[in-house]
């Protein structure tokens, strides 16, 4: 569990941690849009430097960020293979023969893959920084605040935020429950690591069925506890935690917008 980096909050006292979650979410969305613009390598270098500065200010070690890339390795290799097989444009880099079949790797295949990978890495970096510097509860509070104007078009802002908050709250509990069920099944002879595919599927079923049953029971009890404490999804409530924008949040949003403008210029003007 400790190896899971993506989404894990690191409690530190830094200017990035102190930012308003709404400002962080909005800045992340603006930079994500900027990443999707075809601004070229110079643009991505610029975004990379900007994110790097944020990582340094947040006192997050780069090796921790690198660990967040690990789960994406398979996807990156898969992308490379697909591109090598499908892209047939650009300079020929390698041309060889496998079992009588001519096999060519073009420069554009590698270039396109690198382009996507860099975009992916920048996206992972920025979302990881957001989740590492923002408490899950602040994140959901930020989402609720940002969705509030959409209530006029019947977007259930509070319900969405409450669902996310409860899901985040129960992740450790469900992981603990999974471990407990796995150990109970192992003690009955179920092997989750070895065996044929059919045996592995049956082992997973023996884990999933009780886990679902326990989780549904948990959800029922939680709903009772919430109702007993006066919670009504459509009822009027006050908020214990209130968010207030500060000057540093305006600086962050200004920086994000500047990046977006620069990417638009690089992509469409220059």
């Amino acid at each position: 569990m400790d190896k899971i980096v993506f989404g894990k909050y690191i409690p530190l006292d830094t200017p990035i941690h102190a930012l308003d979650p709404r400002a962080k979410i909005l800045a992340m969305l603006v930079v994500l849009v900027a990443i999707f613009l075809p601004a070229g390598w110079l643009g991505y270098l610029f975004i990379g430097i900007a994110i790097g500065i944020v990582i340094i200010l947040a006192k997050i070690k780069f090796k921790v960020i690198l660990r967040a890339f690990k789960p994406m390795m398979f996807m990156m290799i898969f992308l490379l293979v697909i591109n090598i097989l499908s892209v047939k444009e650009g300079t020929v880099l390698v041309d060889f023969d496998i079992f009588g079949h001519d096999f060519t790797i073009y420069a554009d295949a590698i270039f396109d893959t690198l382009y996507i990978i860099v975009r992916l890495l920048l996206m992972i970096m920025i979302t990881t920084v957001l989740t590492m510097t923002t408490k899950p509860l602040d994140l959901t509070l930020g989402i609720e605040y940002l969705l509030t104007p959409f209530k006029v078009i019947h977007v259930p802002a509070h319900e969405i935020a409450m669902m996310i908050s409860i899901a985040l709250r129960f992740i450790p509990t469900i992981i603990e429950e999974t471990m407990r069920i796995m150990n109970a099944q192992k003690s009955r002879g179920v092997d989750f690591e070895e065996g044929k595919l059919s045996e592995k599927i049956s082992a997973i079923v023996s884990l999933i069925v009780p886990l679902f049953s326990v989780s549904l029971q948990r959800a029922d009890e939680l709903a009772n506890a919430m109702e007993a404490r006066g919670y009504a999804p459509d009822g009027k409530r006050t908020r214990y935690r209130r968010l207030k924008y500060a000057f540093r949040d305006i600086v962050l949003l200004g920086g994000a917008i500047a990046i977006l403008v620069m990417m638009i210029i690089l992509a469409f003007v220059i």
Binding site: K135, P136, L137, S165, I166, L168, R169, T173, R218, E221, L222, A225, M226, R229, G230, Y231, A232, G235, K236, R237, T238, R239, Y240, R241, R242
Partner: peptide, 25 residues
């Protein structure tokens, strides 16, 4: 005890009922 701890911290959990009864923050 696990299934009635709604919020992510002790402080927020105690506040949950107060929020529902519209107590002044």
């Amino acid at each position: 005890p696990d299934n009635q701890f709604i919020a992510s911290s002790v402080r927020e959990d105690i506040a949950f009922g107060l929020e529902n009864y519209c107590v002044d923050p």
